[in-house]
């Protein structure tokens, strides 16, 4: 009973209610929105954002931010795509290893710059955002990896499913969410990420190796961006140096901030992030149905981020007011 009560009073319940309200409102206006088909559309929209959001959540909890995710996604997808194009006989799952590995290296580079030189992650990743995007053009010779070059088994992962008709990539993104839940809930590393985010000065006094934890967080962010990259290739069947992953970081930040992850570090739950991603997916799926043109999408994401920030602030204020009252 206790966990249920805790859920009902928390931030996650608020997002959950918002999802229900939003879907009901759209469902009344356009009844065929509530169907298993639109559920499928929503779920197919979210796997990449889900994986990115889990990584960005960890980064934000550690009191950093990673703006280079979209470029890491693009670069890793391109490396895997080039491998498929130039070595067609290779066993296709190697692409996963290559993409995740490439992403991890890019993330490590971000992490090293942040930790060794003690630089603010926002500026570092603003730099690498452009650096990695430029490198993607260079390694690909500014040419697209076409549909014919992506193995059909990989493309099939977005269509076929092992159980319940849920495609592989959706199951994978849910698995990543579960793994992240396990990481932050039950491992020492996970708790250390929260510790350095809540108080970066106190964490080393408790014997936490802040440099190591920060590095790992950035490596995870890169590796998961790489995973999202190979899933992009699976989902869309091409890799384009300029489009692939463009603006990905903004969607991810929107989802994470909606999910109640604090931008001041130390606060954020996997469930909240998960629901934030789903809410964003519902909005994205409902827009074309409501006849709202795709050009408004970015404006909606932007305003959603700002509104979420304001809600987050008022929630935090009420929380501190409550502690003060109970202390008095």
């Amino acid at each position: 009973m206790k966990p249920i009560l805790k859920f009902l009073s928390g931030r996650e319940a608020g997002i959950f209610v918002m999802i229900i309200l939003f879907c009901t409102a759209v469902g009344i206006y356009k009844p065929h929105f509530i169907s298993s088909n639109s559920l499928r559309i929503i779920l197919l929209l979210v796997p990449l954002i889900m994986i990115g959001a889990m990584a960005q959540m960890l980064v934000l909890v550690a009191r950093h931010v990673d703006l280079s995710m979209g470029s890491m996604l693009g670069f890793s997808a391109m490396v895997a795509g080039l491998m498929y194009r130039d070595m067609p006989e290779i066993w296709w799952p190697i692409g996963f290893l290559v993409a995740v590995g490439t992403g991890a290296v890019l993330g490590l580079f971000n992490g090293l710059l942040v930790t060794i030189f003690n630089l603010p992650s926002i500026i570092v990743t603003l730099g690498t955002l452009n650096l990695y995007r430029g490198l993607t053009f260079i390694i690909s010779d500014a040419r697209q990896i076409n549909r014919a070059n992506i193995p059909s088994e990989l493309k099939a992962m977005s269509q076929t499913s092992p159980i319940f008709g849920i495609p592989w990539i959706i199951l994978m993104s849910f698995a990543i969410a579960l793994l992240t839940f396990y990481l932050v809930r039950y491992t020492q590393l996970g708790r250390q990420i929260y510790a350095i985010g809540s108080n970066p000065n106190a964490a080393p006094l408790r014997g936490i190796n802040v440099t190591k934890v920060t590095l790992i967080v950035f490596i995870i962010s890169g590796a998961l961006s790489g995973l999202a990259g190979i899933m992009y290739a699976s989902r869309w069947g091409f890799v384009n140096p300029s489009n692939t992953g463009m603006g990905f970081e903004f969607q991810v930040i929107a989802a994470v901030v909606i999910g109640g992850v604090s931008i001041n570090g130390g606060v954020g739950t996997v469930l909240g992030t998960f629901l934030g991603v789903i809410l964003l997916g519902c909005v994205a799926a409902a827009l074309p149905l409501l006849g709202i043109p795709g050009t408004t999408q970015s404006a909606i994401y932007g305003s959603v981020i700002l509104i979420a920030l304001l809600i987050d602030r008022s929630v935090r204020q009420r929380a501190t007011a409550n502690t003060k009252r109970s202390r008095a």
């Binding site: 930040i253 901030v257 050009t295 305003s303 602030r313």
Partner: peptide
């Protein structure tokens, strides 16, 4: 509202650019 300018201006960056897209298509 005392929000960190880094995140706020990332939000408004997307918002302003999005509004420009709404106006100009």
């Amino acid at each position: 509202y005392q929000l960190p300018s880094i995140i706020v201006t990332i939000g408004t960056l997307i918002f302003y650019r999005g509004l420009a897209q709404v106006i100009a298509g």
